[in-house]
Design a protein around this nucleic acid. Structure first.
Length: 509
RNA sequence: GCGUCGCUAGCUCAGCUGGUAGAGCAGCGGAUUCUUAAUCCGCGGGUCGUAGGUUCGAGUCCUACGCGACGCACCA
């Protein structure tokens, strides 16, 4: 049936073998990335129709193939871009010309030859030798429209990456952003650390966890929802500045801003406070934008977001007053306003109602980066209270396009207050999946933690905003998808590769 | 979990108020030494997401289920 396309390629594979050619290639040195080849053609000032004497090697996947008989033009793609390869019957050894005639879209090749430009001025490597590096058995998607079905794009990201250059570009930019964040912090004496992903007690955020089990110890464990409590232990230990790129796992819904596993930057700075974290956030993001290029005013869908610093630092209460028209300390007004939008939780703490008003009226309306600071203390169990007003906690969220990009505190380092707020938090949440008190964390605080500022920044979301992608799934290489049911008897499939019963000893680690 | 929309060839998509499936690209055969989504001539390719139902007749209408996208809820 539909295996005709694959069967045809299998036959070509056999023809290649009959020619004495290994269709799966091997080691190749001195490969120049396509972007460098392009730059080189510019530097050599080669004119249309000319070919230089300099020899080069090109490698890539065939994404376009134009067969003109005794002349074949191939567009090769690598992660840096495309480059044209010219194959001429008169320039290739006889056997290699036979390979050329058996090439298909998606095959991977290496070629040696001279850089030049065609008569139509296209930078081209004219091949003297052609090396087949991998015969592709499956055909690529449509060459003009590419692969657009999001389902297939996410499940078969490998096809998405070599088919859609803008996808490759996003993930290369993600690498640049993460490297920039790392360098920025390392330059400022932050130590990059790794703390447990498997935790016997989870905390540091409010979310349902994934659970797992360790067989030998016979204990249940949780995949971390946050590294916060471990990083604070390091402050106690004397590491004054620490950060971690933390993969967090939250057993919650999936939408354009949430993936069950996501990457959070968490950083802590002893003797600092949340004002330092605002400076840090501005510095980090600005530095990333400088590296990416494109300026501080960036397109995001139909909108434009202005990242020019300094970003407004607004008080939570002022914003609630401005957008909801309510004094958040006026209990009756808060309840009335909440009721007016259909929020009527009889037993809800007042802080929860205030948060509902904020979520409804304020947050969606903040487009440009805005620090929302000084939150109601009852919403912030891990945050230091304002010395002059205990109702307020020294916390901010950084909001961009109505989305929480970062969350930061002046950290609470009073063990007595910490224990009290955590117990209050636990009491308010009757859900049996909620955390138990982390006694060791309290004990650590009793040994003494320096005052500190701490921040958590969603790196996937940062990549969304800076690359202009509307969904977090466009910034995560393999976002979670529900597995498709296998058709009995069908080989392969588009699912995630390894099942749970993968034989031991086959992994590299 | 709820709602809306979608699922037709390997890919991108048409297919009206029900009448028995189409295009482009890819593929196959042929021509072609400067193409750029190459071009020209010819050819093959489908369990219309799955299972039921209505009907003389279903890609089209109905029901259920599966998967996805978006929105809502959840995510302090």
């Amino acid at each position: 049936m539909s295996d005709n396309l694959i069967e045809t390629r299998r036959q070509k594979l056999q023809q290649l073998r009959d020619l004495g050619i290994d269709p799966y290639g091997g080691r190749m040195d001195r490969i120049l990335p396509n972007r460098m080849l392009r730059e080189k053609v510019e530097r050599l000032k080669i004119e249309a129709g000319q070919t230089s004497e300099v020899k080069n090697r090109v490698a890539g996947r065939i994404v376009l193939l134009r067969n003109i008989g005794k002349l074949i033009f191939i567009t090769l793609r690598d992660s840096t871009g495309d480059f044209q390869l010219g194959l001429s019957k008169s320039m290739l050894p006889e056997n290699e010309w036979k390979i050329a005639k058996l090439l298909d879209l998606s095959d991977i090749v290496v070629a040696d030859g001279h850089l030049g430009r065609t008569k139509t001025n296209e930078p081209t490597l004219w091949a003297e030798h052609l090396h087949l590096q991998c015969k592709a058995l499956r055909p690529p998607p449509e060459k003009w429209h590419g692969l657009s079905d999001p389902d297939i794009r996410y499940r078969q990201r490998y096809v998405d990456l070599f088919t859609n250059p803008e996808v490759m570009r996003t993930f290369r930019q993600r690498v640049l952003i993460l490297n920039t964040v790392r360098e920025y912090l390392v330059e400022r004496s932050f130590l990059e650390v790794e703390t447990p992903t498997l935790q016997p007690i989870y905390g540091g955020a409010a979310a349902r966890p994934f659970t797992t089990h360790h067989n030998t110890l016979d204990i249940d464990l949780f995949l971390r929802i946050s590294p916060e409590l471990y990083l604070k232990r390091l402050l106690v230990g004397g590491m004054e500045r620490v950060f971690e790129f933390s993969r967090n796992f939250r057993n919650e819904g999936i939408d354009t801003r949430h993936n069950p596993e996501f990457t959070l930057l968490e950083a802590y700075q002893a003797y600092g406070d949340y004002n330092d974290m605002m400076d840090l956030a501005e510095g980090l993001v600005t530095c990333c934008i400088d590296r990416l290029g494109g300026g501080m005013v960036r397109k995001y869908g139909e909108k434009e977001i202005d990242f020019t610093v300094p970003w407004p630092r607004r008080k939570y209460a002022d914003l609630v007053k401005e957008f909801a028209g309510v004094d958040m300390w006026d209990s009756a007004a808060v309840r009335a306003k909440a009721a007016s939008i259909g929020i009527e939780k009889k037993h809800a703490a007042e802080a929860v109602l205030i948060a509902d008003l904020y979520d409804h009226f304020v947050e969606p309306n903040l487009l440009n980066p805005t620090f929302v600071m000084d939150w109601p203390a009852d919403l912030c169990p891990l945050t230091r209270r304002d010395p002059s007003d205990p109702r307020i906690a020294q916390r901010f969220e950084l909001i961009v396009n109505g989305m929480e990009l970062a969350n930061a505190y002046t950290e609470l380092n009073d063990p007595a207050v910490q224990e009290a707020t955590l117990r209050k938090q636990l009491a308010g949440q009757g859900d049996e999946t909620m955390a138990v008190m982390d006694e060791d964390f309290i004990q650590a605080l009793e040994y003494g933690m320096p005052p500190a500022g701490g921040i958590g920044m969603g790196l996937d979301r940062l990549v969304m905003l800076l690359t202009g992608n509307p969904s977090i799934r466009e910034t995560i290489l393999f976002p979670l998808q529900r597995p498709k049911a296998r058709v009995p008897g069908e080989q392969g499939g588009a699912d995630s590769p390894a099942g749970p019963d993968t034989a031991p000893g086959v992994t590299k680690s």
